[in-house]
Structure formats: structure tokens, C-alpha cells
Simulated assay, not measured.
Amino acid sequence: MPRLPQLAAAVAATAVAVGVLATAPASGDEPVVSQPRVVAHFDFAAGETPENIAVEPDGSADLTFAFARQVAHVTRHGDIRSRVTLPAVANPNTPVVHNAIVLGIARAHDGTLYVTYATGTAETGVWRIAPGGEPRQIAKLPADGLPNGLALDEHRGVLYAADSVRGTVWRVPVTGGRPTAWATATALAPVPSGTGFGANGIKVHGGAVWVSNTDRGTLLRIAVRRDGSAGPVETRATGLGGVDDFAFTSHHDDTVLATLNSANQVVVVCPDGTHSVVLTQQDGLSNPTSVAVRERTVHVPSASYFAAEPDPNLLLARLNRG
């Protein structure tokens, strides 16, 4: 969720509303998440606001730096080893944010990266970055939309992009081409008087596409039918004020770790929809934007969009169950 003055008032109450939640236990007194540590700090003034993350097999991470228009490769120790910059756009006019920003990211097994780029121009869409290559647009999305989170289903050979403004999940072939408005519903749309951010984070899990809605504070599930079409939109959790991105703790159930951007929190959301806080600002979070889980390591980038003293960073922690 990019930093915007008009968002601050809309989300300020969220921190109070969710701040009363207690940390959830795992087994006995063991916390769900432990040993949090910030391994990297980034340059807010340079636009190094990490928006989304894809984790490599060796535990390093590929981060989208929204306002720098970059994808950066960050080691497990926090060193930036390489950057790829999306092309500059003349007169960007992205809805809500009015800047050209790179947002979602997904990684294929061969190391190919896919990102969403929102510009308010014809460059808005899904871009592919082959290993060692330059970014290339493979699908155009509406210039008046805001493609945000991105998920890859390699089995079906498709990508899903969550459009925060249009309340749409777009489906795009990994080979590129014309996108399809795969799912549209009020549940995916922003609230008229809200921040302007509806559908935001997106994941493929358990035969379905899961989506968070920032304005509505919800986690949604959309079944993928046998023919590839979208089933009905089901609400699986509510009360997640300021929710941004999320990740499943395992392949075996529907337990989720979700970032509450405005509240500076990560919460665990159980399959029954209940949720509890597992990480806070005291652990180093500063407007966390996304979360990834690989084996027993939790990765949480913070963009620090609303902080009085910005500290964009990458936090790692241990997952004790899931």
C-alpha cells in the first residue's frame, strides 16, 4: 500500500482496533512466530519501499521497491546484490498513487520473475524478467486500474493479478497475451469512502485463488473450477483492518500470516477466521506490506509508508508451527 496523505486518516483507527489482540500461542507456551530480527534497512528517500517479496530456494529474496521501480535481490544477510529497473514512464497517472510503481511479484521454478507495474499508461500490466535479462511487458492491463498483488499457478500456466481499484482479479497466460477479467465482485472492490485499495494480496492455494481486501479488512477464497473459471467469492476472515499481503504457513491447511499495514502488525489467521497478533512494531515492523514463508523462516518487508521517521526494512523470524 503506497504512502498517501489521504490514507492516513482512513487507516489511523485501525491500529487502535487491532492493537488489543494478544499474541497467539502455538503448542504450550511456544509462540507461533519467534526470534524476529531486522536483517536489512533500505533508503526511503530513494524509493526503496519494499512492496512485495518472492523467496529464492537459498533463502535470499527478490523484493519490489515500489517507488524506485525496481526489483532488488537481497541476500539472507541483507545485502543487495543486484537490481532491475522498470522503464521510466512520461507523465504517469496511476489511480490513487499518481506515480509509476512496481508492486506484486511471483517467481517461477526456473527463476523467471513476473511483476505488476502500474503507471496509468499503456505500460500498466504484467512484466517478465528472465534470469539475467531485462524486464519485458507480456500483458497490458487497463491504465485506469491498479494491478497490485500477483500470483503464479505454474500447473495451469497462468498468473493472477489483483486490481485494487477495479475490484478485479485478472488472469494472464504466462506466455503473455490478452488478459481475462477472471473474477469481479463487490467483495473485491474498495469501499467508496475508503482508501481506494480493494483487492490487494493474492495467492494460489488448495485449488483456489485467495485475495485480501484492504478497505474491507477481509480474506477471500475463490475456487478454481475444473474448466479454469472462477467460483463464487467466499469470505474466510473479517476484521483484518488495513490488511495488505499474506502467505500460508504450509501447504496442508488454510492458516495464514497476514500483514496489517497501518497497525504495524503481522497476524496469524486460523482456518476458522479468528486471528491474533504475532509480530508488532516493537519487533521492527514499520508498515509491513507483505509476507513470505519458506520452510521455517518468515520474511516480512516493511515499506514505512506512514512512519514519522521512515525505516523501510526486511525482517526475518522463525515459524514454530504451521
Rank of each mutant, 00 (worst) to 15 (best):
Gly120Asp: 00
Gly149Gln: 14
Gly157Leu: 02
Val126Leu: 05
Val126Asp: 02
Gly133His: 09
Ala143Thr: 14
Ala118Gly: 07
Asp163Met: 11
Val126Cys: 06
Gly145Asn: 12
Asn148Arg: 04
Ser164Val: 00
Arg128Ala: 05
Thr168Ala: 15
Gly149Phe: 10
Gly157Met: 03
Leu146Tyr: 15
Arg166Thr: 07
Glu134Cys: 07
Thr124Gln: 04
Lys140Asp: 08
Gly132Asp: 11
Leu152Pro: 14
Pro131Ile: 06
Glu154Leu: 09
Tyr114Lys: 08
Trp127Leu: 12
Gly133Ala: 12
Gly120Tyr: 01
Leu159Thr: 02
Leu159Glu: 04
Ala139Trp: 15
Ile138Pro: 02
Asn148Gly: 02
Leu159Pro: 07
Val115His: 06
Gly145Tyr: 14
Leu113Lys: 10
Pro131Val: 07
Pro142Arg: 08
Gly145Cys: 11
Ala122Arg: 01
Pro135Ile: 15
Leu113Glu: 10
Asn148Met: 02
His155Tyr: 09
Val165Ala: 14
Leu141Met: 13
Gly111Asn: 14
Gly167Ile: 02
Pro147Phe: 05
Tyr117Gln: 05
Leu159Tyr: 09
Tyr160Trp: 11
Leu141Ile: 04
Glu123Ser: 14
Lys140Cys: 05
Arg128Trp: 08
Asp144Met: 10
Ala151Cys: 01
Tyr160His: 15
Ser164His: 03
Asp163Trp: 11
Thr124Ala: 09
Thr168Ile: 12
Val158Tyr: 06
Thr121Trp: 10
Gly145Trp: 14
Arg136Lys: 15
Glu154Lys: 08
Arg156Leu: 07
Thr119Trp: 01
His155Pro: 00
Ala143Asp: 04
Glu154Asn: 04
Gly120Phe: 03
Val165Thr: 14
Ala143Gly: 06
Thr116Leu: 03
Val115Leu: 10
Tyr114Phe: 15
Ile129Pro: 11
Ile138Thr: 01
Leu150Ala: 13
Ala161Tyr: 09
Ala122Phe: 00
Glu154Asp: 12
Ala161Ile: 00
Glu154Phe: 04
Pro142Ala: 12
Pro142Asn: 12
Asp163Ala: 07
Trp127Val: 12
Ala143Val: 03
Leu113Asp: 04
Leu159Lys: 06
Pro142Val: 13
Ala139Gln: 04
Leu146Ser: 14
Ser164Pro: 04
Ala130Asp: 13
Lys140Gly: 15
Pro147Thr: 09
Gly132Met: 12
Leu152Met: 09
Ile129Tyr: 12
Glu134Asn: 14
Arg156Pro: 08
Gly149Pro: 13
Ile138Leu: 08
Lys140Arg: 15
Ala162Tyr: 10
Val165Trp: 00
Arg128Cys: 10
Glu123Thr: 11
Gly149Met: 10
Asn148Pro: 03
Thr116Tyr: 07
Val126Ile: 15
Gly167His: 04
Val115Trp: 06
Gly145Gln: 06
Ile129Gln: 07
Pro142Tyr: 11
Gly133Asn: 08
Leu113Arg: 14
Ala118Phe: 02
Gly132Arg: 10
Thr168Gly: 11
Val126Met: 08
Arg128Ile: 10
Gly125Asn: 10
Ala161Gln: 09
Tyr114Asp: 05
Thr168Glu: 13
Ala130Asn: 09
Asp153Asn: 15
Ala130Gln: 13
Tyr117Asp: 07
Glu134Pro: 05
Leu152Ala: 06
Gly167Ala: 08
Asn148Thr: 02
Glu134Val: 09
Ala122Ile: 02
Pro131Glu: 10
Gly157Ala: 02
Lys140Tyr: 02
Val126Glu: 02
Arg156Asn: 11
Leu141His: 05
Lys140His: 15
Thr112Arg: 13
Val126Ala: 01
Ala151Lys: 00
Gly145Met: 11
Ala161Pro: 03
